[in-house]
């Protein structure tokens, strides 16, 4: 049955290749449009400082055993005390990220711009593909696949008898949408390539509360048991030297 299906070469010339080319062109275009619309926004000193405090607290947490107990305690008090510790967040002050977002019109504007450059071209291309190319097989991959891939590769064709290694045009669109990252990084340079999957993840991570991570670091620091490893180092140094002297 699989052998009977022969794809017209016109499909290759007028669907498969144009679709990929259009996807690439749209990707490049979108990159330049978003570059145009990108606004440089000065970071808030408070947020920068919070990031740095968290970094320092993490360093302290991970390397606590390398400094003398006295120094460690001094640092912990500096970071965690209830009056003016850097990691301590007063209860009323922990403002909601959501509220902050709405109070700052720039932020909302930025998000909208991002959305515009992402969603509009995507909808348009999807509509275009749907309108012109829906419902037929555009390509065949050269190896067999299990039935589970049917929903991924044959989106838009509701035939259960077609072999799974055939790819429908709409699925080809999706494969291109998510798979062109490597090509973009070649065209636009390593760090400029940003594919949609990543963008979507970023959207999901938006609105994280920085004060919460401050609190989490504080809790982490509070429960650390300080165990100075330097006394062990003396023995280790002895062992090292013994070995060195014996050589």
């Amino acid at each position: 049955m699989a052998e009977d299906l022969v794809l017209d070469t016109a499909i290759r010339d007028w669907v498969l290749i144009p679709l990929s080319v259009v996807m690439v062109l749209i990707g490049v275009l979108r990159y330049f449009v978003s570059k145009l619309m990108r606004s440089y926004q000065t970071p808030d000193p408070k947020i920068v400082k919070e990031g740095q405090v968290i970094l320092r607290a993490r360093n302290l947490k991970s390397a606590a055993n390398f400094i003398p107990p006295k120094s460690f305690r001094a640092r912990r008090i500096y970071l965690c005390n209830e009056e003016n510790g850097l990691l301590h967040v007063p209860k009323g002050q922990a403002q909601n990220a959501q509220a902050q977002m709405f109070s700052d019109p720039n932020m909302a504007m930025d998000m909208m711009k991002k959305n515009l450059s992402m969603i509009i071209p995507q909808t348009l291309t999807f509509a275009w593909v749907n309108f012109f190319f829906s419902g037929f097989v555009a390509a065949k991959i050269p190896f067999p696949l299990t039935q589970r891939f049917r929903s991924m590769l044959q989106n838009g064709i509701d035939l259960s008898t077609v072999d799974v290694s055939y790819v429908s045009s709409r699925s080809w669109y999706f494969l291109n949408l998510f798979g062109l990252r490597g090509l973009f990084s070649l065209i636009l340079g390593e760090e400029n390539a940003m594919d949609d999957t990543q963008r979507m993840m970023q959207m999901g991570g938006f609105g994280m509360d920085p004060t919460r991570s401050l609190g989490a670091e504080k809790d982490n620091l509070d429960i650390i048991q300080h165990d100075w490893v330097l006394s062990k180092f003396e023995q280790r140094a002895e062992a090292t030297l013994r070995k060195l002297v014996k050589q």
Binding site: P68, L230, S231, F233, E234, A237, E238, T240, L241, L244
Partner: peptide, 16 residues
């Protein structure tokens, strides 16, 4: 005493 400990750790980290 602390200094000695840190000299020791330096010895250990540099292999003497």
């Amino acid at each position: 005493q602390t200094a000695k400990k840190y000299y020791a750790s330096t010895i250990d980290l540099t292999g003497g």
